[in-house]
Design a protein around this nucleic acid. Structure first.
Lengths: 161, 161
DNA sequence: TATTGTTATACTCTATAACTATA
DNA sequence: TATAGTTATAGAGTATAACAATA
């Protein structure tokens, strides 16, 4: 048995050398938040993309091409996603009156239930995730991230997409 | 290539419906930060993983198996990465005295130069990215993220890995 | 028997191409 | 000519299997 140092890393924190960089910390924390979210979605038997579709059509039907645009996935991927949602009885395709090429994707009652359930579970997961911060700190974090999200792409990389 | 209808969405901000959720914001901002970092690394002709290896061996050589562990990539991936680093003249394999199965991966002068260059470029990119925040706000953000990174995995998802 | 490095292989995701039927 | 949906295919990226050499 090789008693290397790899035994001590059962519970892993961020690498000590890198935590001084805010950019690294940002990615590290976000990765773990996303992991927690994926866990929640998987708990109800879905992938994040399924939920993305359900949320989009929650208020009303949408044609597939539009769903592809909104979720930024390619058309063949959307075909598969909608197929799977139909197979699970969470959504269904209906012909689009006025344009016989297009199909509308409608949410079904079971789909609405799933959305509600995920919202409930992810609210809980979110509360747990941010629990190391008190209420004021959470608001501060939200404010800082909002600033970065809104004013951020005004930086030098704006021309890159 | 398809010339799509999306004329109005040239500069994209985060989806309005989702910015209330801190978890979403966190991921959105982090994704853009990571994108900026990838741009920087690509600028010097590397992928993030290449740089990960170079940084690990910056202080001294390391055997491949250990590099696989540290960077959490599978062994065949590390073989490819080291092959590429050798082809670029940034690192080289040397036999490991005492264990003839293992090879040490050493950084070369050109590799050190690359690391320095990326550090310089990414410091600049980081400064640009966080420029919407003043110095105090940046420190606050760093503190909040540190709290989440250190105390975060004490939450209910700690058992998941 | 376990570990190191390697090759070969499989699987998943993402991205294009090609085709039909409409418009 | 362009768009909507579908099928088929190509390509990265990730993960596993199997192997020879060594411990």
């Amino acid at each position: 048995m090789s008693i290397n140092e790899s035994e001590a890393e059962i519970v892993e924190g961020p690498p000590e050398e890198l935590i001084r960089w805010t950019g690294f910390l940002l990615n590290w924390v976000a990765a773990h938040a996303h992991e927690a979210y994926e866990q929640v979605v998987a708990q109800v038997g879905l992938k994040p993309q399924h939920l993305g579709v359900l949320i989009q059509i929650q208020q009303g039907p949408m044609i597939q091409a539009r769903l592809s645009d909104r979720l930024k996935v390619f058309k063949p991927v959307m075909v598969t996603l909608v197929n799977e949602l139909e197979a699970m009885g969470l959504a269904e395709r209906r012909p689009h009156a006025g344009d016989r090429r297009a199909v509308e994707v409608h949410i079904l009652p079971a789909g609405l239930d799933k959305v509600r359930e995920v919202e409930r579970l992810s609210d809980q997961a979110s509360a747990d995730f941010f629990s190391p911060l008190d209420s004021t700190e959470q608001q501060t974090l939200h404010g800082l991230l909002t600033k970065l999200a809104k004013d951020g792409p005004a930086g030098p990389w704006q021309g890159l997409r």
